[in-house]
Amino acid sequence: MKKLVIAAALSAFAVLPAGAETLRIATSADYPPWESVNSSGEMLGFDLDVGNAICARIEMECEWTNQAYDGLLPALVAGQYDLIMSAISITEERKNSIDFSTAYAQAPASFGTLGESFGEISDKSGLQAAIDGKAVGVQGSSIFERVVAEHFPTANVKTYQQADQIIADLKTGRIDAAVMEVSAWDEFGGADKDANLTMFGPLMTYAEYPQLGDGIGLGIGKGNAELKARIDDAIAELLADGTIAKASDKWFGYDVTP
């Protein structure tokens, strides 16, 4: 695992007091623009900006750790971290193991592929027919694994640790399609225009796919009511004063606030 300690929040936020308590946060920095690692080895992205703003608001110091997505929840349960923050959707299933903050974001998902091989698809039934028997990539332990399994049971689901591995297998033809958040398709497509990544079918939202969860929140260890209350208060303030909306515009170009 790669560990980075971020002692300073964004310049627009309050300066942390000397000796501020450390808040251990884990993320899987392979899902731009939510979180990624730049050429200098620094983690950055929407979640990093929001997480640092929360830490500054509650006067704590963020200590970020980068590890595989499928290990985030077990590590939180084991007490390795205080929080996990990695575009994690709030679902009833996950609530059995961990607590969540209030939602700080909400984002639709979509199927995607290379080029126009799937053509125009206007509704869910057409999407189900198009995906029948096709190899579909999803990030392991993500909500998309369950969405595909329950709504597209005739698809051949392949799981990956990292989103960039999904893109790599799309480009080599090992899978026919994949499911990710719209923002991730936009980011990967913009970074590799020659790949001709294309979303297809109607957007997938909570209204039709409840497995997508009730917004995106921070995972918190079970029973840590005091920390949850402080974080919830900070999120409410950052939503009210426009801080999260500004970070959203910076990283997505549109508003993902709930």
Results as ranks from 00 to 15, higher is better:
52 N>R: 14
40 S>E: 15
254 Y>T: 05
206 Y>M: 07
98 I>Q: 03
163 A>Q: 12
150 E>G: 07
159 T>R: 10
215 G>C: 13
145 E>L: 06
125 S>M: 09
227 L>V: 02
94 R>D: 02
248 S>R: 00
169 D>T: 06
35 E>T: 14
251 W>A: 02
100 F>V: 08
100 F>P: 04
103 A>I: 03
233 D>T: 15
249 D>R: 10
219 G>R: 02
43 M>T: 09
237 E>W: 02
239 L>I: 15
31 Y>E: 08
1 M>L: 12
172 T>K: 09
257 T>M: 05
66 N>M: 11
91 T>P: 04
156 N>H: 13
201 G>R: 12
74 P>K: 05
173 G>H: 05
238 L>W: 00
131 I>D: 04
146 R>F: 02
190 G>Q: 01
172 T>A: 05
164 D>V: 07
76 L>D: 08
53 A>R: 10
84 I>G: 08
256 V>W: 05
19 G>P: 04
149 A>K: 14
114 L>W: 01
228 K>Q: 15
130 A>W: 06
251 W>C: 02
168 A>Y: 04
254 Y>M: 09
179 V>Q: 08
185 W>K: 02
22 T>D: 10
82 D>I: 08
114 L>V: 15
237 E>L: 09
253 G>F: 04
139 Q>N: 07
148 V>M: 07
68 A>P: 08
47 D>T: 08
